[in-house]
């Protein structure tokens, strides 16, 4: 890639930041160019973000309908999935799954709740509640 072809498409996912790209000058020598982004990268980052949003939306619905505990929503809302949450709390996946059941989640001891609270960076209070509305995030 030549310096003149380094994309400068001011992509939304950079939020005004720039990335260093390696490209060749006219004499063929390599240099770095600060790039405001490539639409291809924006496309795939947005795709990943939209998928995370979709999972959180579905989880919100599932918690609303009472089939899952709020933990299920907060996990996805923090861009995690079952394996990630299990690893960051140190619980086995089957245990986390069990805690997705509202009746079991409600009776969890403080010690267990603290582990979730630490891993998700949310207070126990927030962890136990579901936000009353799902605000669609713009992308």
């Amino acid at each position: 890639m030549e310096t003149a072809n380094v994309p400068q498409q001011d992509i939304s996912t950079y939020s005004g930041n720039k990335k260093a790209m390696y490209a060749t000058q006219e004499n063929g020598e390599y240099t770095t160019v600060a790039s405001t982004g490539w639409s291809v990268e924006e496309e795939v980052t947005k795709q990943a973000l939209q998928e995370l949003e979709r999972l959180a939306d579905n989880a919100w619905q599932a918690v609303c309908s009472g089939t899952f505990s709020p933990l299920y929503f907060h996990m996805y809302n923090r861009r995690m999935d079952l394996p990630t949450l299990a690893q960051s709390t140190g619980f086995f996946q089957w245990r986390v799954k069990r805690h997705f059941k509202p009746a079991i989640f409600r009776k969890l001891p403080v010690k267990t709740m603290t582990r979730y609270s630490d891993a998700l960076g949310l207070s126990c209070e927030i962890l136990c509640t579901l936000p009353s509305e799902r605000v669609p995030k713009d992308d």
């Binding site: 890639m1 380094v6 260093a20 390696y22």
Partner: peptide
């Protein structure tokens, strides 16, 4: 999503473009 994931690993994670191939060329 799988296809998008390949490109993310190649371009989004600070690779200097083309999954480190340009850095290595340099």
């Amino acid at each position: 999503l799988f296809l998008g994931h390949i490109v993310r690993m190649q371009e989004e994670i600070g690779t200097g473009g083309a999954g480190f191939r340009f850095i290595y060329a340099s």
